[in-house]
Design a protein around this nucleic acid. Structure first.
Lengths: 207, 207
DNA sequence: ATTCATTTTAAAAAGTCATTTAAAATCCTT
DNA sequence: AAGGATTTTAAATGACTTTTTAAAATGAAT
């Protein structure tokens, strides 16, 4: 019986996990096969043996990250709940999700903006957002006058932007706010949930 | 007499402008001296002749970008204006500033997070934000009850996050919103100004 | 135990990139 | 126009990376 998690994984999985870590931290160009192989504790040639090329390995990691990033939002947006509760849940869960995957936003956005590898037009996930339950809900309640009439894209941008920024700007926030340990940053994130919630709900309810 | 702007510049300036463009678009690792030299229409060896090394050239570009990014915020935050007017001006001007420098946020944040080159602790600019007129103003008016008591870092994060996101996520927003030309994105940005303004002011005034 | 497929390794090969070199071209001063 | 400094170029260098190769190790099936 083997108790360590490392050795449970087969070589292919080990390499993929190592690649995920290195690519997410350094991006395609910054990541070297040497780093990935070291991280996986494996011979460099094995990376190509299992994945044919750096590019192919990268693509599988990127697509996975991309789906994870938007899939999580999509899932939360389609939860059939009253607007206010759904917004709270989105803020709460997505913050926790990002805390567990802090490199995801910057990786996905910066690699997308460089546009080197994957064609953005092939990526179905983001398109689905505009037919999500949440967007319909904003429209309907806007019509009914329960909330202000809004452009759903603006609301989505605001939500995602406010939730995602702390992770992309962590070094700067830490500097400005004089955080001295991880705990203080964690508290900041926890407070952030209510700030964002009150701000967005206040906006929707006003008028 | 020479009417074109290109040829007015001396070689060193030409290289620096080319480097700014390429580094901002591709980051340190993605940018190759070949690209920079091509963009500047110059022999590769000249880049090293004028700047000694890729690293040194990069550092001068990064620091300039960093100061530009935070300097612009800092300047706007220290404008001695009533809170509401200042917030509007910040949103309006910073959006226009970013529209003219759309790669700046992702470049600065992602290069900072990788942490390769410049030490973040050496960068004075962000520290200044917490002693800015704006932050003092938030505190004072919070005490006086003119606005809600807030954590200034939360407000700053929200403002910067909401303003900066459209530029970092432009490909995705374009996809979700079905923008078919630049003009539609421009309109989105213009509308965004009032959305952000109303949201932030609503939050500060509530309670 | 032998055979065969799979996995792993070390080393070579091929390619890319930043940097250096030395010669050539240009410019400026006299 | 000649001389000397500055700028520019093509080519070489050397370090590093990805990919390929072929042999070695491992493991499973007979």
């Amino acid at each position: 019986m083997d108790t360590s998690r490392e050795t449970d994984l087969n070589t292919e999985q080990k390499i993929k996990e190592a690649a995920r870590k290195v690519f997410l931290e350094k991006g395609f160009d910054g990541a070297k096969l040497k780093h990935i192989a070291q991280e996986a504790d494996v011979n460099i040639a094995l990376v190509n043996y299992y994945f044919r090329s750096k590019e192919q390995l990268y693509k599988s990691i990127f697509l996975e990250a991309f789906k994870n990033f938007f899939g999580t939002i999509y899932h939360l947006l389609n939860d059939e709940l009253p607007l206010e509760i759904k917004i709270w849940k989105l803020i709460d869960r997505y913050t926790d999700f990002l805390a567990a995957n802090p490199h995801l936003p910057l990786f996905v956005l910066s690699e997308l903006l460089k546009g080197g590898g994957v064609l953005i037009t092939d990526l179905e996930m983001p398109k689905l957002l505009k037919t999500s339950h949440f967007v319909m809900q904003l429209r309907e309640e806007g019509e009914r006058g329960t909330i202000r009439k809004v452009d759903p894209i603006q609301v989505l941008s605001t939500l995602i932007g406010t939730l995602v920024l702390p992770f992309m700007a962590k070094p700067i926030i830490t500097l400005i706010a004089d955080f001295e340990n991880e705990e203080q940053f964690r508290v900041f994130l926890e407070n952030r949930k209510t700030v964002v919630f009150e701000m967005v709900m206040g906006y929707l309810r006003s008028r």
